[in-house]
Design a protein around this nucleic acid. Structure first.
Lengths: 116, 116
DNA sequence: GCAAATATAAAGATTATCTGAGTATGGGGA
DNA sequence: TCCCCATACTCAGATAATCTTTATATTTGC
């Protein structure tokens, strides 16, 4: 079984599903995707990109300079998409297992969690 | 926002939802709950129980000796149940966000993930 | 009689993330 | 014009949860 992914890693891969993005763009996309509940730290992001590139889950798409600032774009690889899909399945299964258990606790009472 | 929970922590809390269990019982329950895809390591478990007790998410239920072996039972606190419910909501939301994005990738093709 | 299962403990290594600081450019408001 | 903020990336050190390994002790099953 693939080892559990940490949240920043999960969000970075998710941000790259639809298009290649550069580091700072990933940060903004994750903020938007997560409804501002997750704010990637720069240190975390760039370290994670290096690691993910080494693992083959992302790769450099292109580098360009916009307004005098250099950007490095990353894209998701097929392995990255597969890893994200696997992780997503795992998250769903875990959440479903816990939700089912929680429903049996104090039956008839309002639950402390909601479905979005 | 509550900080993301790691997988072993999530499973320990989930295992305690329905009843108080002792350490070794938690290990076996998590193996069963996760369809044998997660096997808690003893070192991880007992360290996590100490930490979770210090955080007030679990508490000692009772201690008893069965067949000459001492067992320490833990139960989930209300805070623990709330934390697990919050985490479950987060997992569901994250998984749904990623799943929606993955569906838009290479439309028409079979997806690399399944719903359980 | 010996291995495997039961039950807990604890030290050291690993690793992703967090924290915080640093470098640099460009745009917008005062 | 000046300064702050947003943009864009880098890096060193601290933190925290987990993993790995080892240890101890009892009981059950073969």
């Amino acid at each position: 079984m693939a080892k559990a992914m940490r949240e920043p890693t999960f969000w970075i891969l998710t941000a790259l599903v639809d298009q290649a993005r550069h580091g700072y763009g990933i940060i903004r996309e994750v903020t938007a995707l997560s409804d501002a509940s997750v704010t990637l730290q720069a240190g975390t992001l760039y370290a994670a990109l290096d690691r993910l590139a080494a693992e083959g889950l992302v790769e450099i798409d292109r580098e360009e300079t916009v307004d005098g600032r250099p950007r490095r774009y990353y894209r998701l690889t097929d392995d990255g998409a597969t890893a994200l899909a696997t992780e997503t399945t795992r998250l769903t299964r875990n959440a479903d297992t816990a939700a089912a258990r929680l429903r049996t606790r104090r039956p008839g009472l309002a639950l402390g969690f909601t479905t979005p």
